[in-house]
Design a protein around this nucleic acid. Structure first.
Lengths: 349, 349
DNA sequence: CGCTTCTATGGAAGCGCTTCCAATTCCCTT
DNA sequence: AAGGGAATTGGAAGCGCTTCCATAGAAGCG
């Protein structure tokens, strides 16, 4: 049928140069005359030649493979939209830069999560890792990965992660502050908060922001009751249900992500509580979930796709620039803009 | 720091056999004495040796790389839960079988979708492809892929795809029939249908099933008004909005997937139409969306994760069994069970 | 104008693994 | 007990690419 795929030698032969020269052209190496470069490129086009990534890896040592790690059980429902958005962004970056992306879901609570992740690095030979919360702040995990000389970029790392590796995220404290300001402006004074899991530092920062906003308005810790959820719809349902009994309960419920807000909304519906008239609810992330539910959620937009793409670019950058040891300031945090998106789930008290 | 990674030669040396023998053990080859096999395995464990997949690919010709293809624009919101479920299942299968999975999103309408996909095969050198609708029925595309000698398994292929390649799916016609029977039993007689895009054959089969159920009850085409959506929440909102004006309009709205049903539900809320009292709405797929909205959707459960995993297994099977030409009946369809999940969005008329 | 210093190119040596084929050993046959 | 086939093992040859080092010219310099 179709003849064998062309190799670098075919290109070399056709353009009348040595194999190394073709390799140089392909890798943008220096010291190649424009004339020769053009001749090679032409042969590449004519033969529809594509480098064999496996051969390149074997010879060159770099696999051009990146892994995106999520903390979720394969069996459980994933925090799907959040993850998809990051993945899509990362994929976009990989396609643009000629890298490949592997996605892995690791049960977060498992004691051997570190072993599993190290295994991914060892088995798949990927040379860069993108960590998502709460792995982004898992100091033990990160140290172990760095020990293996694997490059890392963390998404939404809190203080712990930021100190160790490059990271990308929004100003979560400010995000929490902003959403609180929105509710305070609407006249709310009694709040409930469904926070994230312990160890998810960026979500805790949103909590801090909320408290700062309250303090500015002269309110203290007594103005808010809070619990920790696990970011799933289900936990939103369960935790919200406990809030509806007190007649002097909160008038506004702030959730650490959209899924839990959707769950809270569902619980409210089930109890006949009208949102937002009787209770305002807010989410976080601005995933499609916030637009799908009724009423649509007021939430904080987080540029997840861009975060995914930036993560890849940062990783590739540090991979190709040899990460010149000292001059590469490890642990740089890149802040992206967020914004409050007001929809129908909040109203004046 | 850590010494170089151990190679197959290290294992060979440590266990006192030749490199080939280690290779045989690693690949489950025949003709190795149990005693030798054990000795090698022990050395592997002692050295914490992992095969280098790139080297294996280069030498062996098989990349052990599978690609999962989705038809969606990177910029548009993905049909996230549907895709995530398939991906998760496929990932599970890959991990179990020692393969790697690459996910790609190709804009479906783009004229050069075939070129893009062929490029994926050529550039990434993956040796198996998992197609999702509507690629599953894209005869031109499939023919081209087969011409490249790349193995394919299609998810939810309709007649066109099933004839060409191995495929996995539920009995969509029966799914449509079942959901219609559910509504008919509740007394509904006037229906609306938000169908899928043209060319998405499995979704069309659900339409056929609906018509069959209606016919059995003595109803004809006049009992249902229908339109085509594109499976997005947005299209559900838009298409449903047009249905609410006629006082003698449908009492039940059947949607070809959950996202469009959620959109329709949202549109109903916006118009003050109470679901299910004034209008019953059904979805399809049983993605988490169906549980997140209010009222939760009656829908048809499709075992997406299992479908993803089975797709990988089928692919790997045909890859490793050399696909012995004749005896391998190409185009085998594997049917998985579906079931109607009754939730709050449907009630008696 | 002879000498060093670049700049452009090519030769050779593998990267770690598998496949092909030859060599050895073993176990049955007759 | 000798011959034959099957079961085991190893040697050698790459897979397609990059890296290291050597080789020419071209260019710079006193």
């Amino acid at each position: 049928m179709t003849s064998k795929k062309p190799t670098i030698d075919d290109v070399a032969r056709r353009s009348g140069v040595a194999r190394v020269t073709v390799s140089r052209v392909l890798n943008g190496g220096p010291n190649v005359r424009d004339e020769v470069r053009a001749k090679v490129m032409q042969a590449v086009a004519a033969l529809d030649y594509k480098v064999n990534p496996q051969a390149r890896t074997l010879a060159g040592g770099a696999s051009r493979l990146l892994a995106l790690l999520f903390a979720s059980d394969l069996e459980a429902e994933p925090n799907s939209f959040y993850q998809s958005a990051l993945e899509l962004g990362a994929l976009r970056g990989c396609v643009a830069l000629g890298y490949q992306l592997l996605t892995h879901h690791i049960p977060e609570q498992s004691a051997d999560r570190i072993r599993q992740i190290v295994d991914v690095i060892a088995t798949q030979r990927c040379d860069g890792l993108i960590l998502t919360p709460p792995f982004s702040d898992d100091v033990d995990l990160i140290s172990e990965i760095l020990r293996l000389k694997c490059k890392v970029v963390a998404i939404s790392a809190g203080g712990a992660g930021r100190a160790l590796v490059d990271s990308i995220g929004i100003d979560d404290e400010k995000g929490g502050y902003d959403i609180a300001r929105h509710l305070l402006a609407l006249g709310h004074r009694r709040f409930a908060l469904i926070a994230g899991i312990a160890g998810h530092l960026s979500a805790d920062q949103r909590h801090d922001g909320l408290m700062r906003a309250l303090a500015e308005t002269g309110l203290g810790a007594e103005a808010v009751v809070w619990k920790r959820g696990d970011f799933t719809f289900r936990s939103g349902v369960e935790l919200a249900s406990g809030l509806f009994d007190d007649p002097l309960g909160p008038t506004a419920l702030i959730c650490a992500n959209d899924d839990m807000a959707a769950g809270a909304l569902s619980a409210a519906h089930a109890r006949g509580i009208v949102v937002p008239e009787q209770l305002s609810i807010t989410g976080f992330d601005d995933t499609p979930v916030s637009a799908i539910v009724w009423p649509p959620l007021t939430t904080v937009h987080q540029p997840l796709k861009i975060m995914g793409e930036r993560a890849v670019r940062r990783l590739v950058h540090s991979l190709t620039n040899g990460g010149a040891g000292a001059d590469e300031p490890l642990g740089r945090f890149e802040r992206l803009d967020h914004r409050v998106v007001v929809r129908g789930s909040t109203s004046a008290v």
